[in-house]
Design a protein around this nucleic acid. Sequence first.
DNA 1: TATATAAGTTAGACTAATCTAACAAATTTT
DNA 2: AAAATTTGTTAGATTAGTCTAACTTATATA
Lengths: 233, 233
Amino acid sequence: MLSFTEENYLKTLLKLTMDERGKEEAGTNELALHLGVKPATVNDMLKKLKQKKLIQYEKYGKIALTKTGRKAGLEVLRKHRLWETFLYEKLEFSWDEVHQVAEQLEHIQSQKLVDKLDKFLDYPEFDPHGDEIPNAKGEFKYRHKVTLSQMEAGKSCKMVAVKDNSAPFLQYVIEVGLGINNHMKVLSIHPYDEIIQIEVNGKVSSVSKKFADNIFVICEDCMKNKPCKFHCK
Amino acid sequence: MLSFTEENYLKTLLKLTMDERGKEEAGTNELALHLGVKPATVNDMLKKLKQKKLIQYEKYGKIALTKTGRKAGLEVLRKHRLWETFLYEKLEFSWDEVHQVAEQLEHIQSQKLVDKLDKFLDYPEFDPHGDEIPNAKGEFKYRHKVTLSQMEAGKSCKMVAVKDNSAPFLQYVIEVGLGINNHMKVLSIHPYDEIIQIEVNGKVSSVSKKFADNIFVICEDCMKNKPCKFHCK
DNA sequence: TATATAAGTTAGACTAATCTAACAAATTTT
DNA sequence: AAAATTTGTTAGATTAGTCTAACTTATATA
Ligand SMILES: [Mn+2]
Ligand SMILES: [Mn+2]
Ligand SMILES: [Mn+2]
Ligand SMILES: [Mn+2]
């Protein structure tokens, strides 16, 4: 049985080693930053997680999840995203409110509850922020998404997810008239300050580079399986 | 902000001082028994709860909730019973499975969640065990219920709740063919060992005194507002 | 009333999770 | 290669919640 804290470490480690592909390991400071604790605290926990065979780790080395650790992390992430979906779909929460409550709900221990909730929601594949929900086996759909800031002027794309899950950012996204599955066209990218002009539903908006870094999109060419020389390799 | 543990103490205190009416106070050992900890542990917590003005308590004296303490306890009880109802009504849990999971869910902190859940369930007044669910103001319906063991031979009654919420007991109740809102007639009570014969839906069953102590009923006379000399005063 | 039993308290110890402050190793820059 | 910086570790302390064992107070019984 894992404690809430242990679960949070595993979930965070999983996110750090799966978001940016290629990166399979994390560091003490990085983990501390994301968990909102001090590196010293993380260091103590690393010893415990290693002892429980949930991570691979040597003194002064990098941290990687073991198979069991990854499985446990996936389970927490699955619960988090299912609960977010429940709150959003069934209880009329807005997308900027669900995360905070799901942070608590993800730690409820009951296999039956997870299964029943999944069924009740009709086996959703994505949460309100467009993040993939791992299924009962821990598998999830991979999508070749890029950030809005990686798009070229003149190209069209569809918003599929957000990177930043904080309430202020999510509210700002709504304000700009954007949302999951919205189509948009990149009109221009200003060379001086990288301000990006986009058109959504006929309305033109200007967004910053910082904003665009946190919006995930799929480009129209990719969707149509056309090779897209700009950002897909 | 209260910890899980503090919430459990307040909820348990509330149940001890509201179930049996007339009894407004509880003792250290009694509380320890219900919480599954040692009296020494309770004693430490009493000091903390007193300091937070959630209970009234003097060394070697009895324990009573303050107004704030009672309100906090009611909120936890409300959440517990709403979650039980959700699991039972929406997720197809059986009535012997809901309690264990609700013990965890009752501690989720989100006023909005409680309100939305209440609405989603259409403001239920009773949980799957027949227990009253306090409303948003902390009020709940009072019903003059008695235990099945208090009934006289020849009288009819309706089952409205169970006292024992443990899975083995609840499964046994089903086995006997009983459930919330079932009507039954007490055929006989044997003077030697107090075995009670009841008739439910034409089927006759024999139950022990211990069993009957844990079944709450409303007698037919009381329901019809006829004075009932046997157990109502 | 004296004694036995029940109820409640205290002291001292333990674990999990956290911190600060000091130290050590690894990496980057000059 | 030396110095500076970043990254990671250790020691020692703190807090919440729990325990055992010994003690004290209150209540019931002979
Ligand atoms: Mn989230
Ligand atoms: Mn969490
Ligand atoms: Mn219950
Ligand atoms: Mn509880």
